[in-house]
Simulated assay, not measured.
Amino acid sequence: MIKYLLKLPIWVILSSVIAYICSCIFLFFYQPRLIFFPSANLEKTPLYFNISYQDVWLPVEVPNKKSQLIHAWWMKADKPSNKVLLYLHGNGLNIGANINRANFFRELGFSVLLIDYRGYGRSQGSFPRESQVYQDAVAAWNYLHNKQKIPSEQIFIYGHSLGGAIAVDLAAKKSDAAGLIVESSFTSIRDMVALKKMFSIFPVDLILTQRFESSKKLSNLKMPVLFIHGLNDSTVPAFMSRNLYTLAPEPKKLVMIPDAGHNDVAEVAPHEYEQAVLSLVEMSKFAAAN
Rank of each mutant, 00 (worst) to 15 (best):
V60T: 14
P46Y: 02
A19T: 10
L6K: 15
E250V: 00
A139V: 06
N263R: 09
L247H: 05
K173H: 11
G159S: 09
A276P: 02
T209C: 04
A72T: 02
G261Y: 05
N220H: 05
K147I: 15
Q275T: 10
M223T: 04
E250L: 05
R122C: 01
A238D: 11
Q210W: 01
M240R: 09
K147R: 13
G261E: 08
E107W: 02
E267H: 10
K65W: 02
G164L: 06
A139C: 07
A97Y: 09
N50P: 01
C22S: 15
D191E: 15
V112R: 08
A72N: 05
S16M: 10
S52T: 11
N91I: 04
L254T: 06
E183L: 07
F239C: 01
W73P: 08
A178T: 02
M75R: 04
T246W: 00
A102C: 12
I228V: 13
P237D: 02
Y158L: 01
K65F: 06
G230S: 11
D191P: 03
S39Q: 10
G90R: 03
N232S: 14
A276R: 09
I181K: 10
S67P: 15
G96T: 09
K83V: 00
S52L: 07
Y53S: 10
Q132V: 11
F199D: 08
I25W: 07
E272P: 00
L221H: 06
N100T: 08
R242N: 09
V62M: 13
E61Q: 13
M283P: 03
C22Q: 08
Y48K: 12
Y20L: 09
A171K: 07
S131D: 12
S39V: 00
I157C: 10
S184P: 06
D176P: 00
N82Y: 02
H271S: 09
L221W: 01
D191W: 02
S152H: 04
P9L: 07
S152P: 03
S15F: 09
S23V: 11
L162D: 05
V12D: 00
L93I: 03
N263T: 10
M240W: 03
T45G: 04
L8G: 05
L218T: 06
D259N: 15
S131R: 11
L218C: 04
S39C: 01
A276I: 08
L86K: 07
N64T: 08
R118H: 12
Q31Y: 04
F36R: 03
L14Y: 00
E282D: 08
E61P: 01
K285V: 03
D116I: 07
D136H: 12
I150W: 04
M192T: 07
A139R: 13
L58S: 05
P224I: 02
H160V: 04
S39D: 13
K79V: 06
A287C: 03
D169Y: 12
L8K: 15
I201L: 15
N232C: 05
S52R: 08
F239E: 10
I21D: 01
K197P: 01
F199Y: 15
F28N: 06
N64H: 15
K253A: 02
P270M: 06
L206M: 11
L206K: 14
K44N: 11
Y134R: 14
V62W: 04
F212G: 10
V182F: 03
L114G: 05
K66C: 00
A137E: 02
E274A: 12
K79E: 10
A102Q: 09
P151H: 04
N64Y: 14
R118I: 01
I21A: 15
L34V: 04
